[in-house]
Design a protein around this nucleic acid. Structure first.
Lengths: 341, 341
DNA sequence: AACAATTTTGTAAACGTTTACAAAACAGAT
DNA sequence: ATCTGTTTTGTAAACGTTTACAAAATTGTT
């Protein structure tokens, strides 16, 4: 008859007992603290290995008040963009022995906010936030917790925390300019969430490009919804049913673009011949031959890595770090959908 | 001049002080333990809210020896199959106030094993494992830790832990049978990792279907690699360069199938007319109009949910639960790629 | 008003670490 | 052998909870 719970594993005291020394010394040996005799240290190491000792993270946290855990908040694990970012984060921080709680919000501000309790309770050491909410209210709440925070989305007002973003305006500009160069005169814009920075910034770059050509965006050709392909599909259907339908569309992300493709396909319209299309993100599937989506590529993994490095640096330093802001530059990658070939 | 670290937040003692009672009572009130006066309880709640109290998870873990943290190990966060599973897990366990560490192994057995230290150290309460390694060696090591473990992949030998799997053999059979019904006589198989259960089981179902028609799988038409689309692409290229090339292919997952499509496209071969194709998983993109991949659909989210529920049940019960095994049934979903339309 | 029974509260120990400080062991010099 | 200085080790407190047990307060009964 065995107990279900081993009720705690091997502790530092067991090692001390076995090695015939005090547990303070064991702690020192295990943590490579100075002032412990070589012979003792190796004996401790030997015993600890033999007994199968693993330090109890909770106990350690309690006294050091750091958990070596981070949280990464993303709005949609189902959008290939975010797993890529997550990978960048995870790989970087794991090298420094940090682990990450992946928090998926499903674009739900309430759920996002509800993670606050998690962070507070678990006393995570740092937080990387890709907010679904763009007025910065939630981010500000997170910032108030005092843990190092880096946001990988931008906000209207300055939150005063680290920031790693890609230059959405520039990306939008690139897209607009490229479409213009092709001579399209009725260029539509399909955004994600209305008011979301990813939408508005990309749009403003797009507008800038139009302005450069002496044009203005036609409000009737600018539709919004959410960052899903269903939304792109529905809005494209509307746009393409128009009397004078657009001959080019800039989509605020690739998922939207794929929805647009779908709509065009169904209507028998040829993407690139009848309708030029540019997306944003460069998710893996964009390069797929059957898709060949021209898009504004974001350095996804890099984004995660940069955010992780900032957190790590902040965690490593004693003083409070000044808020850093890193702006990554997106690039136009030309495939078929824009009608270039 | 402010200190960087707040060095611990509001504690139970602060509340006790403020409310003028002992901290044991505060603890009881906060945890809804019986035997605390209604008035006291509400006062505690009020004070705790006013002070912004969050229980310290580490301290709590230390005494209760449970962390309310689970780990989910997956081999490839970049394969849309797994985020879907992850979502099922996360949504289910979060309702019971558990959080999850997402551990991505990149199909690397070493990395997978290295997570062991994490689990031991963090004393996670439970573990859901989609192993990249199929002989069960790693899973067995995980099982030895004594924490409730549910694997969502199958192994050659019986590991003696909970298991939630989909019937790969049946899935393979469905695929083979469907292809056979179409009259294809040279059916190839492109697997993922050779020897991986996902590969071998799906293949064995496929063989069974062939056998039912008095046929045998042609070893020359069965290629292996990894579960990525690049691998599918490369192997398809080989297959399609054959003198007597196959007229149908069963791919062990959708990513592979998409690679195969790509190869066919490049060679000017029509999927469905010149080459029938069936995948496995039913990732989101399979239903995309430009893909229209006929595939064996796995209940991805369900898989995660079921695994999570088992863990939760195990965690909830006092005695050691008998190992449960849940087998989910995959389904054939017919789209274009198999030549049905 | 006193007692028993019950409800509510408080005290203290425990969980497994880290770390300041004190104590002991050792080395080298006399 | 003794002393000094250094290295190594040990003791004890602390981190923030939970919880068994003891103590106190409250209630009901007579």
């Amino acid at each position: 008859m065995q107990h279900k719970k081993k009720k705690g594993g091997v502790t530092i005291k067991d090692i001390a007992m076995e090695a015939g020394i005090s547990y303070a010394t064991v702690s020192r040996a295990l943590n490579n603290r100075p002032g412990v005799k070589k012979a003792t240290r190796s004996r401790v190491l030997e015993v600890s290995k033999r007994l199968g000792y693993y330090p109890n993270a909770a106990a350690r946290s309690l006294v050091t008040s750091q958990t070596r855990a981070l949280a990464l908040v993303i709005p949609d694990i189902t959008n290939p963009f975010f797993p890529e970012v997550a990978r960048g984060v995870e790989e970087t921080v794991s090298k420094a022995d940090y682990n990450v709680f992946l928090c998926n919000t499903n674009w739900d501000g309430h759920k996002e906010l509800s993670f606050l309790a998690l962070f507070e309770s678990r006393r995570i050491d740092g937080l990387i936030l890709a907010s679904s909410n763009d007025d910065g209210a939630i981010a500000e709440k997170f910032a108030q917790t005092g843990v190092p925070l880096v946001v990988i989305s931008s906000f209207e007002r300055d939150i005063g925390c680290h920031q790693v973003i890609v230059d959405n305006v520039w990306g939008g500009y690139l897209a607009g300019r490229h479409l213009l160069e092709h001579g399209y005169d009725r260029i539509a814009f399909i955004g994600g969430l209305a008011g979301a920075r990813a939408t508005t910034e990309r749009f403003s770059g797009f507008e800038k490009a139009l302005a450069g050509a002496g044009l203005k965006a036609d409000p009737g050709l600018c539709l919004y919804g959410s960052f899903t392909w269903e939304s792109g599909y529905r809005n494209a259907l509307k746009l393409l049913a128009l009397e004078r339908r657009p001959n080019a569309i800039f989509a605020a992300n690739d998922l939207l673009a794929m929805g647009i493709m779908q709509a065009a396909d169904e209507l028998g319209l040829s993407i690139s011949d009848d309708l030029a299309l540019i997306g944003f993100d460069d998710i893996g599937f964009a390069s797929y031959p059957r898709i060949c989506l021209t898009t504004i590529a974001q350095p996804k993994k890099k984004l995660g890595e940069a955010a992780a490095e900032i957190i790590l640096a902040d965690l490593g330093s004693e003083r409070k770090e000044a808020a850093r802001k890193i702006v990554l530059t997106p690039e136009l990658v030309i495939r078929r959908s824009c009608g270039c070939y």
